[in-house]
Design a protein around this nucleic acid. Sequence first.
DNA 1: GCCGCTCGTCGAAGCGCTTCGACACCGGAA
DNA 2: TTCCGGTGTCGAAGCGCTTCGACGAGCGGC
Lengths: 356, 356
Amino acid sequence: MSAPPGDRAAGSPTRPVKSADLVTIADVARHAGVAVSTVSYVLSGKRAISAATRSRVLASIRLLDYHPNAGARALASRRANVIALVLPLRTGAQVPVLMQYATAVVTTARRYDHDVLLLTADEGAAGLRRIAASAMVDGIVLMDVEMHDNRVPLLRALTRPSVLIGFPADPTDLTCVDLDFHRAGEVCVEHLAALGHRRVALLGAPTAVYDRGTGFAHRTRAGFTAAATRLGVAAETRPCPEEVAAVRDELADLLTRSPDLSGLVVQNEAAVGPVLAALPALGRRVPEDVSVVAVCPDQFAERASPALTSVPVPAEETGREAVSLLMRKLTGEPVPDATLLAPRLTVRGSTAPAPG
Amino acid sequence: MSAPPGDRAAGSPTRPVKSADLVTIADVARHAGVAVSTVSYVLSGKRAISAATRSRVLASIRLLDYHPNAGARALASRRANVIALVLPLRTGAQVPVLMQYATAVVTTARRYDHDVLLLTADEGAAGLRRIAASAMVDGIVLMDVEMHDNRVPLLRALTRPSVLIGFPADPTDLTCVDLDFHRAGEVCVEHLAALGHRRVALLGAPTAVYDRGTGFAHRTRAGFTAAATRLGVAAETRPCPEEVAAVRDELADLLTRSPDLSGLVVQNEAAVGPVLAALPALGRRVPEDVSVVAVCPDQFAERASPALTSVPVPAEETGREAVSLLMRKLTGEPVPDATLLAPRLTVRGSTAPAPG
DNA sequence: GCCGCTCGTCGAAGCGCTTCGACACCGGAA
DNA sequence: TTCCGGTGTCGAAGCGCTTCGACGAGCGGC
């Protein structure tokens, strides 16, 4: 089965005891009849190599199924070709979007020949310090940034570049990307106002999200309110729970106090279904009596019945942009501090001219 | 600003010219007045170190804020202390559960002092080969295994250990963990049968999921059917779409053909809401006329109205178990080939004795 | 008082890669 | 012809860490 015990101590000279599956750059060099450094240059392209040599080396690489050792490469080049993605630990509501962000980050990173190390927010600042100091990653993408996030000062101090998805209260010296949620709030109101609605309401994130100081929730609300004021539309905003029954109660209360409410903006994936179920139960048809606009991933909006007029959260695009920015920073290129993605409103079946 | 050029060659003793943020083990050793190897042994505990020396070294480590370089460590020790987590690329339906799995894997891995490299399934077998061959990871956790998965043969061939979440058709020589979905299907029927229901139906995953050969869907269906036959309950099973309108149509059809249907098992997170919305619309009250059992994450079941009797998918537990198994394999311990987690049925408000 | 331990520590040899300086060779300019 | 600047390739020096063998010191047993 295995070598006799005395074997390793014994003097039997050469016999490269390589553990079989380990093909090194030296093996490739030997096989191709060139120096190790030549193989390295073929791979990195950092020096000119003649076409003949190059193709001989590449052939050997393929033949031996050589894959550079990541640790060795990272050690020698001081580049790990790995970026960190920090996800919120939180399970629940926003989860499907999160996944879209993550997927976009991973696929984009791969396109730049980088891998992604997944961290959860529960390790907090200490976790960031750890992976940065250990040179495990070259840069960091941080999701779900809060307005007053204790990781932000650390990020500023770190020698490794980072990109935030979302905006903290003070984004000085940081690179941030996000949907322009303020504008998104405005766009929703503008759409409803254009349809003649005179009283609208925003059903936002759950109370906890506002309390946590999550930027996108606050910003959407601000945009919503600002546009309503500007357009002379009566507006109110409320946090919105995610349990079916609670959503129904909230809506019932809303409609009792403001029977003439005819426009609703929902910014809460989990609440979208319940809202659409509750309205008919409360005697309001969508869109004949009440128009509904959602701020949520497109797939949610499409699957609902009726399909929802919505401002999609461009998770895919945001994740992609975050990685591109990070890669640019890694190569020393200057990048803009703030990248605000413009919201687009897609009209579907859930909005119609105001009744009456 | 910096040391004069001749400095390093010249004899001027200490004064490490290191690029500021890089504290190495040599710095620690010098500071503590011991050999580099001693510091290493303090950190790894692989040799006895006197209490005095140990605490002196630890003090220096803390003082200098030393973090071992991951690449160097991986190179020398042939252990990266990183595991790979391969997620399905697919966005949509099962996503929230996925996230729970991922979170559990990451937090558990951290408990074992490992980090997690995130891969998406779209890199396929080539991606697995790449990270395994580059020694980037010590082991692999693969999610969303299909019955005839082309990555499975590769996994068998790889020198690095792996654990699958889910079971392929032939799990020989593999380590797999999952909820016992066959038993889960049975448990649902048993519950309904015990309540006196004589005709039941399973609304499963979307057609595409069955076609893809996804184990859990097939196994749940098999268990469901087997238990129904055994208990003399009339049963049928159907794939289930995820769009609200389509779900409604499916249910209408089902109830038209079998007006005496009084028990429903739903194995599709996205369909749960629509089903609960459609039944009243079709003149069926839950649970008075129709009892509903869901196979879905607990949080979904709790938030529905009425709260759903359910067999939760133990994502947290499964992820945790997968990592523990992998860690055991990494240390050479033997582990069971198959780990089937027993389903637990939680009774809530959506099931009641059969009408009549 | 010597032997043979174990315990605690050290020095040095790599791990597999990148990168720097050196250098041989070639063709064109002087 | 000599000199020169490219090109293409090589050898060697690390990158920061782990680990192996060596070895001095202390100690109980004979």
